[in-house]
């Protein structure tokens, strides 16, 4: 076989296997890889991504976060950029998303800054797009909107999305029922409690708590 034949044969093999391998990796994983470089706020982050040392960088950033938040020499102003860096490197880091949204919402509440609230929610919407199969993300943003900015009407669509996942924790249902009761939709809340009571994976003590939510909605 001539060299040109070998070259062409293996070139075709290379392209073919490359396409095949890419078809196996699902769209979520590809979405993580395709996030916009323009969203990175640090050149070092892009370098980390380029060299493929993301996991180690995330671990180091968590150590830095721990140091900055709990140490005597704490520097709180650095916490949000650290969390932003973590979520850029890995949009699946729910803890980082939750923490940074909480911090931004509390800050916005203190300063009565509506723009910052909207920015936080918009950023979390991107996280939802990157993690469409995870119930924890809609639950986290719904919970934060409900408790931190006291806007049950805005929290409801997120919580409805979270309860559509069969594998969810029953805490999602608790917050969902609470939101419905606050919004005055008692009938829907009662219907949902009935569904919960039929579930066998929830303990009787928890079921009693669900019943008491309907009996004492203000508790």
């Amino acid at each position: 076989m001539k060299r040109i034949d070998t070259l062409c044969l293996f070139l075709v093999l290379m392209v073919g296997t490359g396409i095949f391998m890419e078809s196996i990796i699902d769209s979520q994983a590809l979405l993580v890889r395709k996030r916009a470089i323009s969203e990175a706020n640090d050149v070092a982050l892009i370098l980390v991504q380029m060299l493929g040392i993301r996991e180690l960088a995330i671990g180091s950033l968590w150590i830095q976060f721990d140091y900055d938040s709990a140490n005597v020499m704490a520097s709180y102003h650095r916490l949000l950029p650290i969390l932003d860096a973590i979520t850029w490197l890995n949009p699946q880091e729910l803890d980082a998303w939750g923490l940074k949204t909480y911090m931004r919402m509390r800050k916005a509440h203190r300063e009565n800054n509506r723009i910052l609230v909207e920015e936080s929610i918009r950023a979390f919407d991107n996280a939802l797009q990157a993690n469409p199969e995870n119930w924890e993300f809609p639950f986290e943003i719904g919970r934060q909107i409900f408790f931190n900015i006291a806007s049950p009407g805005r929290a409801l669509p997120y919580l409805e999305r979270a309860i559509s996942f069969p594998e969810r924790h029953f805490n999602v249902d608790k917050i969902y029922i609470k939101t419905l009761l606050v919004l005055g939709n008692r009938q829907k809340a009662e219907e949902h409690v009935k569904i919960i009571l039929q579930r066998e994976d929830i303990e009787p003590t928890e079921k009693e708590r669900f019943k008491s939510m309907i009996k004492n909605p203000l508790k």
């Binding site: 070998t6 070259l7 293996f10 070139l11 093999l13 290379m14 296997t17 490359g18 095949f20 391998m21 196996i24 990796i25 699902d26 979520q28 994983a29 590809l30 993580v32 890889r33 993301r54 996991e55 890995n90 699946q92 199969e133």
Partner: peptide
Amino acid sequence: LKDAAINSQTIPYSYDFAAILYSVSLCVV
């Protein structure tokens, strides 16, 4: 495959064979 592993996606073993074929083809080229 870390991204796929984070998403708990199961990667079939055919991917491993494809990866070997891909790297061998690339090296030969």
